[in-house]
Write a protein that binds this DNA or RNA. Structure first.
Lengths: 256, 256
DNA sequence: ATTCCAAAGTGTTAATATTACACTTAGTTA
DNA sequence: TAACTAAGTGTAATATTAACACTTTGGAAT
């Protein structure tokens, strides 16, 4: 392994984007992981991916491409989705991010020198599971959802990146109504509450949640009701982005 | 200007760090800006810097250097300060960040190709003005404090970076007690309040602020009082970091 | 010594927000 | 038609917020 270190040329680092794509299946929060192309891990004939064979979708930033564009491109190539919530949250650049054999080999598949340093700009994205359609992609054999509570060992420092993304999404969830990006346009209040509970990892009292979120006044109650449930059907609501943005009033309050 | 565009080689982008260093003089929030070395702006003989001659302190990331280390190094070289609050907040990578003649020429002073793309990882830092001692630095002729309310035109996209840093610091100020980094170890509650007012750009009611911040229970009241003021001397307080960190209790509350 | 000045320091009340908590309703399935 | 399951609802006790004005203290000026 060490032999690579001495070969490194004095070049600028590669720069990539990686996307932590979250999806919510009404039970758990999931992350979309790709299985890297076969052939770069020796002796892996089993059907389940080898340790570290899974990774976050990512790619090098193209020349003349904005960072956000690169993120959107990766997302699009993998999911065929446009106009998706996507937010940069951190750059990762430890000089030894690319450390093991498998990672180095994979570098070639993205046309990078195997010994180069890679600095990555990480994004998190929120997609509705029902909109997601797996796409053949240049950087992935398969892609699959994994619950955040049970992420396997990933390539590079991607486990760290997922953790940081989770922290970022939790922080943001309390300050901006981003949760709606993970739900269908019409949803029940219980679905919304379960989403919050899942992301925050904490139970929320039904009546208080209901009152609190309805007071915000950006949920439009519809006449429509849930169908196909074996119990009393819940009323459906819609998120009114316009209203949220107009009502926007900066609040001064210590939360520390 | 256009002639540079065609010369760009197909190389990885340069990667730099830039630091938005904030200081508080009990009146205003200030940012430390450097005046770039002379000679790269033609016909600038006046004593005050030409438009765009001012910039955020920054430098390329060294090989085998972590991003945070690079930020700390830039800070240290300019201020001779160690162990200063420093936090990454965003990466900027617009392909045309380096656009004008002066910026391109300056690239050479930091040993970069003048036509290269530069992606920068931006940090904000909070320093006590009284601790700051300007240092000769490899990338700056002078450095000087400028009030955030009156930042001149800067090099590259540094005006944008300063704005984003301000937004980041405002956000963080409400969620973590970072304000103390800008005050001397012993301070009065009025000084603390004015700091908050300055950063948030909003007046805060004296009695309510006092009650609210004291209830947090991480301010140690000292027996000592302010000296040298032409009115009743205020009691001095100290921030108790230990206590803050132990009391830390995650809070669930929508602020949107 | 006395007065003046400027900011420090202090308490109450009304309105609002938060928490904790249990029963009834409605739709589906057996 | 009975059983099941989640939806939907209200209240009371407590805590927090916002608005508001006067007294105290120490130094500076006369």
């Amino acid at each position: 392994m060490l032999e690579y270190g001495n070969l490194r040329k004095n070049l600028n680092p590669h720069v990539s984007v990686d996307c932590v794509i979250f999806g919510f299946d009404f039970q758990e929060l999931n992350v979309l992981l790709i299985e890297r192309e076969e052939g770069y891990i020796e002796g892996n004939s089993s059907s389940k991916p080898a340790r570290g064979a899974l990774a976050l979708p990512g790619d090098h930033i193209h020349e003349d491409e904005k960072l956000d564009q690169a993120g959107a491109r990766v997302l699009k190539e993998l999911t065929n989705l446009d106009n998706i919530f996507l937010e940069q949250f951190h750059a990762f650049g430890h000089p030894n991010r690319v450390k093991n054999e498998a990672d180095r080999k994979w570098m070639k598949t993205i046309r990078a020198e195997p010994n180069a340093r890679v600095i990555t700009v990480a994004y998190y994205s929120l997609v509705r599971l029902d909109r997601y359609n797996p796409q053949a992609s240049s950087f992935a054999k398969h892609a699959a959802w994994f619950p955040v509570s049970d992420i396997p060992e990933l390539a590079f420092d991607h486990n760290l990146i997922v953790m940081r993304a989770l922290e970022a999404i939790r922080r943001t969830l309390m300050n901006q109504p981003i949760g709606f990006e993970l739900l269908p346009p019409k949803f029940t209040l219980s679905q919304l509450r379960r989403l919050y509970e899942t992301i925050l990892g904490k139970e929320l009292e039904k009546r208080n949640f209901r009152r609190k979120i309805l007071k915000k006044d950006f949920l439009i109650p519809l006449e429509e009701k849930q169908t196909g449930v074996p119990h009393k059907a819940a009323r459906l609501f819609q998120f009114d982005k316009e209203k949220y943005e107009s009502h926007q009033t900066e609040k001064y309050d210590f939360t520390f």
